[in-house]
C-alpha cells in the first residue's frame, strides 16, 4: 500500500533497531485491531436484531397474556379482537386462514415450481434457459402488493367469480393462488440448485441403460435431489405463511375458521395489517395482541426454516 512505502521513505520517522520500523508496526497493529473490532461490531448487529425481535415479541406478548389466558388464545376459534364488547382472542380462526392460504399456494407452487426446475435444467436449450430463468426471477422481484392488487382486481372477478359465481369479492382462493404464483420462482430456483447438484454420471448411467429423458428426470434425478426439493417446498411454505400484503388485500378481514375457499378469511398477517391501518395505541389489549400474533407467526416461520435446513442435512445424498 502507498501509505506503507510513504512512511518507510520518511527516514526520520524510522526508529530503526535492526532494520525494523517499530512505529510503523505499532500503527499497523493498531489499524489492524481497530478494523477487526469495527467489523465484529457490525456482524454483531445481526445478533442484536435477533435479540431485539425476541425481546420485543416476548415482552409485549407477555403483556397480552396477563389478561388473556394462553390456553384460550391457542385453542379458541373465535377472533373478535376489534369488537367493542365481547372481545375474544381465539387465534385458531386466524391460523386456519393462514394454513388454508398456504395449502392452496403450495398446490400451485409445488408442481409448477418443481416441473419448471426440471424443464430448465434437463430439457431447455442453453438459449431458452438464458431467457426463461431471468423471466422467472422477475416474478420473484415483483413487490407483493402488486400481486395483491392482481388477486383482488383480476383473479377474483375474471377467474374465480366466473367459475364460481357465488364467490365473495374477498376470498381465500384468490389470495392463495396469488401467493402460489409469487413463490413459484423460490421453489423453482432452489429445486434447480438441488437438481443441478446431481452428478452427470448418474444421468449418463441411466441414459446408457436406455431410459427416456422423462424416466431419467422422474426416476433418477428427482429421487437423487429429493432432500433439496423438499427443503425448497418447506421454505416456500414458510414464505407463504409470512406473506402479508396479498392476503391483506385479497382475502378480506373477516376473522373466522376458514372452511370455504370462496369466502373471506383473515390470516395472522392480515390481522396485523388491519390493526395498524387503524389507530393503534400502546397499552391497549389490541396493541399487545399484535405481538402475541406476531410471536406465533415468528415461531411458525422459524420452525419451518429450521426444519428445512435440518431436512437437507439429514437426508442429503452425498455424491463424490
Amino acid at each position: 500500500m502507498s501509505a506503507t512505502t510513504e512512511s518507510l521513505d520518511r527516514r526520520e520517522n524510522v526508529a530503526a533497531v535492526g532494520g525494523v520500523n517499530y512505529a510503523l508496526l505499532r500503527r499497523q497493529r493498531f489499524i489492524e485491531k481497530t478494523a477487526g473490532y469495527i467489523l465484529l461490531v457490525c456482524a454483531a448487529v445481526s445478533v442484536l436484531t435477533t435479540v431485539g425481535i425476541a425481546i420485543i415479541l416476548l415482552t409485549e406478548a407477555i403483556q397480552f397474556f396477563r389478561t388473556e389466558s394462553v390456553f384460550r388464545f391457542l385453542t379458541g376459534t373465535r377472533w373478535t379482537a376489534l369488537f367493542e364488547f365481547d372481545q375474544s382472542f381465539g387465534v385458531l380462526a386466524l391460523v386456519s386462514a393462514t394454513m388454508m392460504i398456504t395449502f392452496i399456494a403450495m398446490l400451485v407452487a409445488m408442481p409448477a415450481g418443481l416441473m419448471s426446475a426440471i424443464y430448465l435444467s434437463e430439457y431447455a436449450s442453453e438459449r431458452s434457459r438464458t431467457i426463461l430463468k431471468p423471466t422467472l426471477e422477475l416474478l420473484a422481484g415483483i413487490p407483493t402488493i402488486i400481486y395483491g392488487y392482481f388477486a383482488l382486481s383480476f383473479i377474483t372477478p375474471n377467474l374465480i367469480q366466473r367459475i364460481f359465481p357465488g364467490a365473495s369479492v374477498f376470498n381465500v382462493l384468490s389470495a392463495g393462488l396469488a401467493v402460489g404464483i409469487m413463490i413459484i420462482p423460490l421453489v423453482a430456483s432452489l429445486s434447480e440448485d438441488a437438481i443441478r447438484a446431481v452428478p452427470r454420471a448418474m444421468r449418463e448411467g441411466a441414459y446408457a441403460m436406455g431410459a427416456t429423458k422423462f424416466e431419467v428426470s422422474t426416476r433418477v434425478i428427482v429421487p437423487a435431489a429429493l432432500s433439496g426439493i423438499v427443503a425448497s417446498f418447506i421454505l416456500a411454505a414458510s414464505r407463504a405463511v409470512g406473506e402479508t400484503m396479498i392476503v391483506a388485500l385479497a382475502a378480506g378481514s373477516k376473522a373466522q375458521i376458514a372452511s370455504d375457499p370462496l369466502q373471506p378469511a383473515q390470516t395472522m398477517t392480515g390481522y396485523i395489517v388491519q390493526v395498524v391501518s387503524g389507530d393503534v395505541v400502546r397499552g391497549t389489549n389490541v396493541y399487545y395482541s399484535l405481538y402475541a400474533v406476531g410471536l406465533l407467526l415468528f415461531l411458525m416461520t422459524l420452525g419451518l426454516n429450521i426444519f428445512s435446513h435440518w431436512f437437507v442435512r439429514r437426508f442429503r445424498e452425498v455424491y463424490e
Binding site: T50, G52, I53, S238, G242, T269, L290, T301, N305, I306
Partner: peptide, 17 residues
C-alpha cells in the same frame, strides 16, 4: 434465519423498539 423472518415481523420490531 434472519433472512427468513417475515417482513411484517420486522415491522413489529420497528414499531416496538
Amino acid at each position: 434465519n434472519l433472512a427468513g423472518v417475515p417482513s411484517v415481523v420486522y415491522g413489529l420490531l420497528g414499531l416496538g423498539i
